[in-house]
């Protein structure tokens, strides 16, 4: 659904239309959860934070039009803020084990375990990037957003997003075990 077609739905939600609120939730719950899940350590944290995002959405709906950004971008900004809050809270208490999701994986089928391991590998690599780079890479390649849509979320220009994407992918490729390959690549050598 495009930003333009979101308008009436958002307007109805602002007026308290329950069906519209539910429709917004159904549309954005999974993308927001994916975004949050790649950025925090456990599925439980991701679920809690997703709930916080949608509660914040409801509270902020009356003032949404003042922000002047697409609705989806506004939601991602809320999610980013909630994640930042989460890590601030984490500094004051012991951090959860990053492998929570894998702890109970002994009873899962092998392909499921491999999938969880891949997610965990990507998550660990992503978390080495800056907050903005994480948001960019997740939105660009997990959610398949355009440079303009990413720019709306980050509050930057598309050109700045392209530059940031270049730096983020160099770093991510190195973190994912292609350091040697990246070096050759940057030198212009074929691997």
């Amino acid at each position: 659904m495009s930003s333009e077609s979101m308008g009436p739905l958002v307007l109805r939600a602002q007026r308290g239309d329950q069906a519209a609120i539910e429709a917004l939730y159904q549309q954005f719950a999974q993308p927001i959860y994916r975004y949050v899940a790649y950025r925090v350590a456990t599925a439980a944290d991701a679920e809690d934070l997703t709930a916080e995002v949608f509660v914040s959405m409801l509270k902020g709906l009356p003032s949404y039009r003042q922000t002047g950004v697409p609705f989806e971008a506004w939601l991602y900004r809320i999610a980013s803020a909630r994640i930042a809050d989460h890590y601030r809270r984490m500094r004051t208490r012991p951090q959860a084990d990053l492998a929570d999701d894998l702890a109970d994986s002994a009873t899962l089928p092998e392909d499921r375990i491999l999938a969880l391991q891949e997610i965990e590998t990507l998550r660990r690599a992503l978390r080495q990037l800056t907050d903005e780079e994480q948001t960019l890479v997740i939105l660009r390649f997990v959610e398949r957003k355009s440079h303009q849509e990413v720019a709306d979320v980050l509050g930057r220009t598309p050109k700045a997003v392209r530059s940031m994407q270049y730096r983020a992918l160099i770093r991510l490729a190195s973190l994912l075990g292609s350091e040697e390959k990246v070096r050759h690549y940057l030198r212009g050598e074929k691997s």
């Binding site: 719950a29 959860y33 790649y38 390649f141 992918l169 994912l176 390959k181």
Partner: peptide, 25 residues
């Protein structure tokens, strides 16, 4: 390596909210 990293992320089995979790939230 850069496009491969992007493709690896794009093709990964992404986390999904279960129906129960959807309802809870």
């Amino acid at each position: 390596p850069l496009t491969e990293a992007a493709a690896r992320l794009a093709s990964a089995p992404h986390p999904t909210l279960s129906p129960d979790a959807m309802a809870r939230i």
